[in-house]
Amino acid sequence: MTGAELVIDGVTLTAGAHRLVEDVSLTARPGEVVGLVGPNGSGKSSLLRAVYRVLRPAAGRVGVDGTDAWSLPVRQLARTVAAVVQESGAESDLSVREVVAMGRTPHKRLLDGDTLEDAELIRSALAAVDATALAHRPFDRLSGGERRRVLIARALAQQPSLLVLDEPTNHLDIRHQLEVLSTVRRLPATVLVALHDLNLAAYYCDRLYVLCDGEVTASGPPADILTPLLLAEVYGVECEVAIHPRTGAPQVTFLPGEPSPAAPAVS
């Protein structure tokens, strides 16, 4: 597994007459973890859908290693890009191990069984998300957090060059949030991840893109981007930002009440 280069160039996404994303450009270099942050409805999930080829751009281009992602054959795309989305309901009749084994499908021919390598990759993926004990349980009997971990394991078993994650820490307790993101951080794959938790984004991401109303408001390293002024403008709340003495990452503390006049919220 090696990291791919992702280049989103001037992408606009629409739903009927409504513009979801407007002229967004983004680059994720091989092996980087790049985060998308912003309020609900800012266009994060829509942009991810354009990358894993569910929502076709009305304008612009999504390039993976120099090739238009929308021109790749389906099998080649599946070998290159893996996605963990917020909602998934196609695995209800399968065991956990069978769900994770689906990640190996792009690497097989029709009717091929599991090889020893496949079995080891499935085992390793389950272990990476602390789901080994769940292997033989029905997927549809799991809690929301357990399902999330299993779907991440399936993506790990796929061994993609580009991993796309839409709120991967949803439904996870604090321990599993940290474990999952630490696992993702260690991958050689390039990662594009949408996160609500700014402190997790600050610690685990190399660079952040801040989306608001479907446009990129700011981009850069977390320490440059996560400022009280910008967060007040984008989120409409007052906050304090300090560098954590142990992690060295920015730590955001949101404060109750309205933003100060020096940092007005966007109307």
Results as ranks from 00 to 15, higher is better:
E238Y: 05
L208R: 02
R75C: 06
E87D: 14
T253Y: 14
G31L: 05
V7D: 15
I152C: 03
E91Q: 14
E91P: 00
A265M: 03
D197W: 04
A262R: 14
L255R: 07
A119R: 15
K44L: 07
R148C: 06
Q159A: 14
A131G: 12
E238V: 02
W70N: 11
G10T: 10
Y235G: 11
L110H: 12
L151H: 07
L181C: 05
L121H: 12
V129S: 09
R185T: 08
D224P: 01
H18T: 15
G38C: 01
W70G: 10
T217M: 10
D140V: 02
R246C: 05
E32M: 02
L165M: 08
L255K: 06
C212G: 14
D9H: 13
A101P: 10
A82I: 12
V81T: 02
P138F: 00
V241S: 03
R185G: 07
L121I: 12
A28E: 06
V266F: 15
K44Q: 03
L94P: 01
Q177L: 05
Y203H: 13
A101G: 15
T227R: 10
V51M: 02
V62N: 00
E240L: 08
V193K: 07
L226Y: 01
A127Q: 14
D140Q: 09
G10R: 12
S25R: 01
A157N: 07
T217C: 10
Q159Y: 01
A155E: 03
A263T: 14
G145H: 03
V21L: 00
D140W: 09
G43T: 01
H18M: 07
Y209K: 04
L226S: 01
T80F: 09
A249F: 08
T14F: 00
D130T: 11
R49C: 05
L36P: 05
T115C: 07
L162K: 03
L181S: 05
A223D: 11
A249L: 08
V37D: 10
A28S: 10
K44S: 03
V54H: 08
I225P: 04
D93R: 12
L151T: 11
P160C: 03
L72I: 10
V33M: 11
Q177I: 08
L6R: 06
P261N: 06
A78R: 07
V129Q: 06
L192G: 06
A131L: 04
Q76L: 14
M102R: 15
Y209H: 14
V193M: 14
V34E: 04
P250H: 08
V85F: 00
G60L: 09
P228A: 09
P39F: 00
V85E: 13
L178P: 04
R175Y: 13
L195Q: 06
H244F: 11
Y204M: 06
K108R: 15
V74R: 15
D213M: 07
Y203E: 13
V193E: 08
L110D: 07
D114N: 11
A125V: 08
L195N: 02
E167D: 11
Y203M: 10
G103T: 05
T105L: 12
V62W: 06
S45M: 01
E233I: 02
G89N: 12
A83P: 03
V237D: 01
V99L: 11
P57N: 09
R186Q: 15
H196R: 02
T80C: 09
L13Y: 06
I225S: 13
V252D: 13
R246D: 14
E146H: 02
H176G: 09
D130P: 03
G248Y: 09
F254I: 08
P259I: 08
G89A: 14
G257K: 03
A125R: 02
L151Q: 10
A69C: 12
